[in-house]
Write a protein that binds this DNA or RNA. Sequence first.
DNA 1: TGTTAGCACTCAAGGATGGAGAGTGCTAAC
DNA 2: GTTAGCACTCTCCATCCTTGAGTGCTAACA
Lengths: 339, 339
Amino acid sequence: MGLDERKFLILQAIIDDYITTAMPVGSRTISRKAGVGFSPATIRNEMSDLEELGYLAQPHTSAGRIPSYKAYRLYVDKLLKAYQLSNDECQRIAEHMETRSRQVEAVIRRAARVLSDATKYTSVVVVPHIGSLRIRHVQIVPVSEGVAMLVIVTTAGIVKDAVIHIPEGLTADHLYGISRMLTEQLADKPIESVRQIFAEMIRDMGQNRKLLADAMRVIEENIASVDDRDVYVGGSANLLSYPEYADVAKAKNFLAVLESREMLRKLMGSGGVEISIRIGPENELPELSDCSIVTASYRMGDQSTGTLGIIGPTRMDYSRVITVLHFMGNAISQLLSEK
Amino acid sequence: MGLDERKFLILQAIIDDYITTAMPVGSRTISRKAGVGFSPATIRNEMSDLEELGYLAQPHTSAGRIPSYKAYRLYVDKLLKAYQLSNDECQRIAEHMETRSRQVEAVIRRAARVLSDATKYTSVVVVPHIGSLRIRHVQIVPVSEGVAMLVIVTTAGIVKDAVIHIPEGLTADHLYGISRMLTEQLADKPIESVRQIFAEMIRDMGQNRKLLADAMRVIEENIASVDDRDVYVGGSANLLSYPEYADVAKAKNFLAVLESREMLRKLMGSGGVEISIRIGPENELPELSDCSIVTASYRMGDQSTGTLGIIGPTRMDYSRVITVLHFMGNAISQLLSEK
DNA sequence: TGTTAGCACTCAAGGATGGAGAGTGCTAAC
DNA sequence: GTTAGCACTCTCCATCCTTGAGTGCTAACA
């Protein structure tokens, strides 16, 4: 028993209805829809088939049907080929994204809010891995005895800082000298190649420059900690509006996931695909087994990419979400790469 | 009709009970408590008086009594004189606060989490106003045509950055020169005095240094935006465990407040008092009319102070919260001022 | 052979009913 | 001033019943 044109039509109608109402869909409802010219009885027969095929489920006898995970997957796969940008709403979103500051953090933060406002779901935006960004400037500023700030300015205007402990005997002048040298040596190099460059530099240095080599080792150790722990969440309360989260315990679990930034970062890993959709059980976390996560990516500067995503109920409005994500991905890319 | 010893004893017993159970307290319950040697009937008479005085309320006839806002206020005022640090738990908290990094952000973030874990309420930690911090280093790094990053390193290891638009015709060398000059002139000056120092510098400069004056004006304009928008929240989901928030709509309102950082910052304004307690209707926001906010302050470096606070139901365990806040305030102060 | 009308059946949701239990207020006795 | 006793009130919970939505099956129809 395959999935002919009519079955697909009915399935799609059921999903569409369920997405907006969150209530089991009955045969009469579908029968009344425009574009479906069959009586409830016929629909019932088809629904029965669809259930047997695993696309529909029944909460109990005499309730309507609800789409299964398998149905969403089919729906989304078919849908993906056809999505396109909405036209008038783009402008509205673009307006909201308008901000004087081109500061990365500001843009990202704003994007998270706009995303959640536009979709009414929860949004997550992950700052690009900075490893591939190029270094513009390195500065070590003494703060107190034995402690200094390591500041790295990269392309795309990202500033990263870390506290480092510096070897005894280094004066402020030493540190400035080191900063100048580091900036010269590292300018225009990607952060991930620092380690290697350092190794070469230390090798080439005279043995009498022991102090310098020490300092560089300390810095190198801290380069790793100068990484991107930035995950921004927007509209964390939005999901509570949906009947799926009428149960407070469930809502609590969900919010706990949002608070663990490491977890979120993992969940958002899109694997470089343009649009990635993970439906319900496709997520590793059991807390999110009735959520779907849709992610897209944006570019910052030349090649580093970040991720933006939406977390919503499995019955989310995929079509709209995909559209918005696609549009926002482009918008962010443009803002962050603007010269 | 005053509030004699016995009335206060009974009131305190009622509040204590209500704090743990969240259920209206009956006369029998109080009568059974150790330290109260009266029959339920006597308690009832006293309760009736207390209700008339405005300290208790009755959800409906034949329900027990619940404390009013006025009762909490009295309770807290009396209590405040007597609070003291717990002893064994301090160690546990201190352990959790242990972190290699002395980076301000890391310490604050950790503090928010520890606070919410220790109290089971929602915690908010506000980074000190950086206006009074002293400048260590100023650097302007060109990022692209007409755009540069302004980076300011202050005492206490806080790094602030902003995107600035620079006048045409300034080369990278110019910017480095300016950076050096600015660092020389501004070192050890508090950020809030920058404006005045700039005014003097520009006045003293020869007319031929127009470019420099322009650049400085741009920087001055951006100093304001290099301010502290950092508010960290911990355990936002914690409050959902309490029956007060069994209603999802209420929970949603609460979470929305947490998302508006500007709002939070305002709410946390402690006014410099060591411990500030705002109970229910004392908060401006109607969404928080059945919440209490307890805040304490911590010091960073020499004189700038930040705020840490707990948001919980009005029936929160004030005694414990005050204790924990007091302890944490000291712990953070110590970590951030450590040499 | 596919489609449809008719009908009996099922089940959840919602409203009414009726104890059970907790708690109060009042009165009278100690 | 304190307490026992008692009638009274009100919520909570379980039970029962009705209603309505929806199904599955069968038989008739094109």
